[in-house]
Design a protein around this nucleic acid. Structure first.
Length: 94
DNA sequence: GTTGAGCGTT
C-alpha cells in the first residue's frame, strides 16, 4: 500500500515518517521528498506498507494528526504510473 | 537561518 503524506513539518525526515507509521504496522519504505539541491524537505512524503489493513489503520489514525505542531494529511497515494505501461524488456520495435 | 500547495529520485 502506497501512502501519501503531506503538510509535514520541514524538520521531519524519512526516519521520522517511518517511526510514525511503524506504530501501526510494518513499514517497508518511508521517504520524505527533499529538494535535490538544498536537501530541504518539501513537506510531503511517501510511505509503503506491505499490510493493507495496517496501512488503512495508519491512514485513519494519522490523517489529521498533529505532528510537530502541524496537522498532517495522510491518504492513499495515487498510482505513480497511470500512463500506459510499455514492456521494458521489449526491443525498440514500437 | 527562510517557505507551505502538492504526488517522489530508486
Amino acid at each position: 500500500m502506497n501512502i501519501y503524506v503531506s503538510n509535514l513539518s520541514f524538520a521531519v525526515i524519512d526516519e521520522d515518517l517511518r517511526s510514525y507509521f511503524a506504530e501501526y504496522g510494518e513499514v517497508s519504505s518511508a521517504k520524505v521528498i527533499t529538494d535535490k539541491f538544498t536537501n530541504r524537505s518539501k513537506g510531503f512524503g511517501f510511505v509503503e506498507m506491505p499490510d493493507d489493513a495496517a496501512a488503512e489503520k495508519a491512514i485513519a489514525e494519522l490523517d489529521g494528526a498533529t505532528v510537530d505542531g502541524r496537522t498532517i494529511k495522510v491518504m492513499v497515494a495515487r498510482p505513480k504510473e497511470e500512463r500506459p505501461a510499455r514492456p521494458a524488456h521489449s526491443n525498440n520495435r514500437w
